[in-house]
Simulated scan of single mutants.
Amino acid sequence: MRLTQHDATAPTGMRNNYVVMRPQNLSVGVLPVHDDGSVTLVGQQRFGLMNYSWEMPEGGAPYDEDPIDGVKRELAEEAGLAASHWREALKIELSNSITDQRAMAWVAWGLSAMPIAPDPTEIIRVTRVPFGDLMREIARGSVRDMFTVATTLRAYHMAHQGELPPCLAKAMLASVR
């Protein structure tokens, strides 16, 4: 990433100094949903806030790479999964007051196991939980990764609105009370 500094005039006419953080990659993530409606999450230590975080598989895709290739790589590396079906869920700006960071997320299903190959700097734990448990952990504040929260809530909406296969949506929503 790099930081840029700008002497600018705000919409109010006041002069201000703006600093923008510019990541070198597009953020990509995927909520992997199994046929029974459960989801795979990965847990890892996050340096920025010095905390442990449960989240969907996510990472960065260079801007010159097709984002779907990047997210498929992250799913394999972090969760040891491949998916036969993908549906785009989100295109978002993560914190547009201080960064131009953009993100894309998908819901994936038709999952099969493959060898896990985490980045050498990561120690990743993998777990599978009912979709409703993930929703409840978000409500409790236990899952705080904004990318995971937004994608999970979007997947819930997609399941309700018929944007996912009916049998998958039914399995996901069965565990939500």
Rank of each mutant, 00 (worst) to 15 (best):
R2C: 08
Q5H: 11
D7F: 11
T9V: 15
A10P: 06
A10S: 10
M14G: 15
R15M: 14
N17R: 13
N17W: 14
N17S: 12
V19Q: 12
V19C: 12
V19L: 10
V20E: 04
V20Y: 11
M21V: 07
R22K: 13
R22M: 13
P23R: 03
P23M: 02
P23S: 03
Q24I: 11
Q24G: 09
Q24P: 08
N25C: 14
S27M: 07
S27Q: 11
S27A: 11
V28I: 05
V30M: 05
V30T: 08
L31Y: 00
V33K: 05
H34S: 12
H34T: 02
D36E: 03
D36P: 06
S38Y: 00
S38G: 11
V39Q: 00
V39W: 03
T40N: 02
L41Q: 04
V42L: 07
V42G: 06
G43I: 03
Q44A: 09
Q45T: 06
Q45C: 07
R46P: 03
M50Y: 07
S53E: 15
S53A: 10
S53T: 13
W54G: 04
W54T: 05
W54K: 09
M56H: 02
M56V: 08
M56R: 03
P57W: 01
A61R: 02
Y63V: 06
D64E: 09
E65V: 15
E65L: 15
D66K: 13
K72H: 06
R73D: 09
E74V: 09
E74T: 06
E78G: 07
G80T: 01
L81D: 06
A82G: 08
S84V: 07
R87L: 08
R87N: 07
E93G: 11
E93L: 10
S95R: 11
S95C: 07
T99E: 03
D100T: 14
Q101R: 13
R102D: 06
A103R: 02
A103S: 14
A103F: 01
M104V: 14
W106K: 05
V107N: 02
A108H: 01
W109N: 04
W109Y: 15
S112G: 09
A113N: 10
M114V: 10
A117S: 15
E122W: 15
I124Y: 04
I124S: 08
R125I: 08
V126A: 02
T127C: 12
R128Q: 09
V129F: 05
L134V: 15
E137I: 00
I138V: 15
A139H: 13
A139D: 12
R140L: 15
R140M: 14
G141L: 01
G141C: 01
V143F: 05
M146N: 10
T148G: 04
T148P: 00
V149I: 13
V149A: 06
T152A: 15
R154N: 05
R154G: 05
A155S: 06
Y156F: 13
Y156D: 08
M158W: 00
A159Q: 04
A159W: 01
H160R: 14
H160Q: 09
H160G: 07
H160E: 12
Q161K: 14
L164N: 04
P165K: 02
C167T: 11
C167V: 10
C167A: 10
L168Q: 00
A171K: 00
L173I: 08
S175V: 02
V176C: 12
V176I: 06
